[in-house]
Design a protein around this nucleic acid. Structure first.
Length: 875
RNA sequence: GGACCCGUAGCUCAGUUGGCUAGAGCGCUUCAUUGACGUUGAAGAGGUCGCAGGUUCAAGUCCUGCCGGGUCCACCA
């Protein structure tokens, strides 16, 4: 025997992956319809986590299926430079060495990052490979490679030329720890209980949770309709005693103020609050910076200048208290604090000059109309050019776009694509700005030190990965020429599928739609499959900080094998819903792989050295039955894979392999042996299972050696008309055998004879039944009046001792009661005129038929009970 | 404050546009098993489908309200 008794995944996986990769199976074939998708690029310095495993499992399953359908499939690998995250890691390493980026200088710092990335990039590549991902590594890309830099820069320049990218002075989210701006989407809000103060401010009472920002406040704002303050007019000035002494303040009336909240009056701090900024802009008010970029108070704070913002609150309150200006303190006030997603610092809004993408400017051509990128983003999903799975995310998507503001794309970190813009001091003040790769002519130009938001470059991923590096690196090529000169782009774009987590719908998916429609005039992908989060057994999020229940994919691969891990992740997988993963689940799938392995072992042992050609040649009843089941399974698996319902597809397949093939057909084959068909069923099963469990299926395929080619390159099974016929007879056998087993178990009759009313059909299959039930004999009963296969229990007359008969009778009585209930229920239903009139005809007919059948069964049951009662009385 | 999702067996979940006696896997109990199988096979127990109304011949499924759990967005000085 060639196959060992147990499938040990780790003995085969690495070898198999190498065979696949060397064979060129991962690169698209020249023939066939194109099918493409990109791997959402993992962080180049990241470590593989179970989320990656889930992503790869889903995508690889789809990719292998499409490949087996004969398509020319491209799945593009790549890694992401993850600007802020990587920048932070390297800065931390520098700090440990007692230095920092400023001491090192920009160039040295970037060298440091590059070498750090290069080192860890290999790890993630290896780990993705270990998952069995059939990615085309010859086309691997990296978001920070030089070609990408060129593409990203060109897009920036193009957007600038079209007026979509502009330099503006606006309020942005400032992270004081990372020392950079972050986008709205990178800000989280955490609820916090804090003190809400009410202060006396001139003739007013104002409320605030942030006294430490109030130094420069010189406007009080109230709703114009608020009757309590109707004696004050807009623009009216007054004097107030405030933190650093007497100030002159002004009354502003604005509808943004909620009269219900607090006293209905507030002061504003435009420099450090988005809403205040808007009010100030509306009324053209002065704005003053209170807090510097390190989070310290500026000179405006007087003797408190230089104090850290976190420490300033008490000082300010004490000062006001000493002036008797504190009226009320509510210590139970709940509000949300803005926290930076990456740096975990409290976000301090600041007014800064930054680069923005204008989402409302109608300058983009789409389907013959000139529109804003916001409108196009809405339209492509609305028109169903792009389908989002599950559908309910459409609503979330639209809602996000409705609230979308101009996107701040400049970051003050060094690691990233440097902004291709140049500044020069203008005579008489101000700056002159030029946008372009090359330093402009003339003296005194300096390049913008800032870099672009990571998502600005990630947003180009669907098509930038399809542009060949040589074409992109040639400075003569414009963006349009790059697209035209790239055969991969022409063949594979738009991509067919984008598979990613719903948590980055906004970060990435929406922005890909934004950039791609603008630059290429095409949608980036046709279908978006949003998978859920991977959770622990108890439903908690898997995170580094709470490792309880967390699953390390690499450990699991070693312990149970890649296939087992992948199957556990695909099991129950449906778009948009979270999946729980834990060891028992993986172990169960390991057992499934082993089951498959042993099916193959059995078949192989049966064949010995015989050369068998797999053929769908059916001879016996059971043969037709298994062929039919195989056809139904193939149909079901294919249909669900087409719908991206991987969980369902696999469930159908697993039920077939375990329940039909192993438990029934293999058992039957021990009596009625049809080698060609047995081989055929195994051959087809391996094809069906390959997208889900590539390693074990390929290993078996190779060991059996029935065919020259690799399984990965083989064709997906096709269902032929007629494959589904002739199953009724075997279904009967299955039913009878099940029933026989059932009664036998119930009565614990190990050696009793089982008398059958039997027909010629039963007689013909007698050996089979004897074998399958393990019973010693089936005796034909001569008094048989013909066979009623449909009424299950009645098939068996059992000669048993009285107490066994009694328990059997109880069983019969239970059945009879159930049957009675059903009969009366059905009768009632049919007696209902509204039902017979209004329900669909087929349904009524069905019900009538069911009633008739049930009545026959009931009659039989009653007779049977009667005869048993008689029998018991006799003994 | 706005939106979305979920609540079905001890656990994890299926249940299509309302329609046959509400299902699966795991776990548990019992029986069998040296013959492809880290076991596996057969069977059993276990459910007022969160609660209360409504629509309908018919509701786990549709509608309304409530309770409980979760997620996203906005944001209040």
């Amino acid at each position: 025997m060639k196959l060992p008794k147990v499938y040990k995944a780790s003995d085969y996986e690495e070898k198999i992956y190498k065979i696949w990769e060397d064979s060129g199976s991962f690169t698209p074939r020249s023939k066939g319809e194109a099918y493409s998708l990109v791997l959402p690029p993992p962080n180049a310095t990241g470590k593989l986590h179970v989320g990656h495993a889930s992503m790869v499992a889903i995508e690889d399953t789809i990719v292998r299926y499409q490949r087996m359908l004969g398509k020319s499939v491209l799945w593009v690998p790549g890694t992401d430079h993850a600007a802020i995250a990587t920048n932070a890691v390297v800065e931390k390493r520098l700090a440990a060495k007692g230095t920092d980026r400023h001491e090192l200088g920009r160039e040295k710092f970037l060298e440091e990052v590059h070498s750090y990335v290069a080192k860890s990039q290999d790890d993630i590549r290896r780990q993705i490979r270990a998952l069995g991902a059939s990615l085309d590594w010859s086309r691997e890309r990296y978001t920070m490679e030089t070609a990408m830099n060129r593409i990203v820069g060109e897009v920036f320049i193009k957007m600038h030329d079209d007026g979509l990218v502009y330099r503006g002075r606006r309020i942005v989210n400032w992270d004081r720890i990372l020392q950079t701006t972050v986008s709205d989407d990178e800000v989280d809000y955490h609820e916090e209980v804090t003190t809400f103060y009410t202060f006396k401010y001139g003739p007013f009472e104002i409320g605030t949770a942030r006294p430490e920002t109030k130094f420069g406040d010189k406007y009080v704002v109230m709703h114009p309709d608020d009757k309590r303050y109707s004696q004050y007019t807009h623009g009216q000035e007054f004097e107030a005693d405030w933190i650093s002494g007497k100030i002159r303040a002004k009354v502003i009336k604005d509808k943004a103020v909620d009269p219900e909240f607090g006293t209905g009056v507030m002061t504003i701090t435009p420099w450090h609050d988005a809403k205040d900024f808007e009010i100030a802009q509306r009324h053209k008010l002065d704005m003053q910076q209170i807090i510097d970029l390190d989070g310290r108070l500026l000179d405006v704070a007087g003797d408190m200048a230089g104090l850290d913002i976190a420490e300033a609150r008490n000082a300010v309150v004490e000062k006001l208290r000493s002036k008797n200006l504190v009226i009320k303190e509510d210590k139970t006030y709940r509000h949300n604090v803005a926290i930076s997603d990456r740096g975990k610092a409290v976000i301090e809004p600041q007014i800064m000059e930054q680069w923005f993408v204008d989402v409302n400017k109608p300058v983009v051509k789409w389907k013959g109309k000139t529109q804003s990128i916001k409108q196009i983003m809405q339209q492509v999903v609305h028109d169903q050019d792009i389908e989002i799975l599950p559908k309910r995310f459409n609503k979330t998507y639209f809602h996000w776009i409705d609230n979308l503001r101009d996107w701040c794309i400049s970051r003050q970190i060094w690691w990233g694509h440097r902004i291709p813009a140049w500044y020069r001091l203008k005579e008489g003040g101000g700056h002159e700005i030029k946008v372009g790769f090359e330093e402009p002519e003339g003296e005194g130009w300096n390049q913008d030190p800032d870099t672009l938001d990571t998502w600005f470059s990630s947003a180009l991923w669907s098509w930038s990965t399809l542009i060949s590096a040589e074409v992109a690196n040639d400075p003569k090529n414009s963006l349009d020429e790059m697209l035209k000169k790239s055969p991969d782009y022409k063949k594979f774009h738009p991509t067919n599928l984008l598979e990613t987590g719903y948590d980055i719908l906004f970060f990435w998916v929406a922005r890909m739609i934004l950039s791609t429609t603008y630059v290429t005039g095409e949608i980036p992908f046709k279908t978006v499959y949003l998978h859920g989060l991977v959770r622990t057994k108890t439903g908690a999020k898997m995170s580094k900080s709470t490792p309880e229940g967390s699953i390390d994919p690499l450990d699991m691969i070693e312990k149970f094998g890649t296939d087992a891990l992948r199957l556990a992740l695909v099991f129950g997988q449906t778009p948009g819903s979270d999946v729980r993963i834990y060891e028992e689940k993986i172990e169960a799938q390991r057992n499934f792989c082993n089951k498959l392995w042993n099916i193959a072992r059995y078949v192989e042992s049966k064949f010995g050295d015989e050369k068998i050609e797999p053929k769908p040649k059916a001879e016996h009843t059971a043969d037709h039955w298994i062929l039919s089941r195989l056809a139904v399974t193939t149909k079901g698996v294919s249909a669900n894979l087409d719908k991206h319902q991987l969980g369902k597809a696999f469930e159908i397949l697993q039920n077939f392999i375990w329940g039909d093939f192993a438990d029934w057909y293999i058992e039957v084959s021990k009596i009625q042996y049809n080698p060609e068909l047995l081989a055929y069923v195994l051959d087809t099963t391996l094809r069906l299972v390959h997208p889900f469990a590539p390693y074990v299926s390929e290993t078996i395929w190779g060991t059996l050696g029935w065919r020259e080619s690799l399984l990965i390159e083989e064709d997906w099974p096709v269902v032929k008309a007629g494959d589904q016929k002739k199953t009724a007879e075997f279904d009967e056998i299955v039913n009878i055998v099940k029933e026989v087993r059932h009664i036998r178990t119930q009565l614990k009759m190990d050696d009793n004879y089982l008398y059958h009313k039997t027909s010629d059909f039963l007689e013909e299959n007698k050996d089979l039944i004897v074998k399958l039930t393990g019973l010693r004999g089936v005796r034909k009963v001569s008094s048989g009046k013909g066979l009623h296969l449909n009424s299950t229990v009645m098939e068996c007359w059992i000669d048993v001792s009285a107490h066994k008969a009694h328990s059997y009778m109880l069983k019969l009585i239970t059945k009879r009661e159930e049957s009675k209930q059903l009969v009366s229920k059905l009768e009632e239903r049919l007696a209902n005129k509204k039902y017979t009139k209004q329900a669909p005809k087929e349904l009524v007919e069905q019900t009538a038929q069911q009633l008739a059948d049930q009545k026959i069964l009931l009659e039989k049951l009653e007779k049977e009970v009667g005869s048993f009662e008689g029998a018991i009385r006799r003994t």
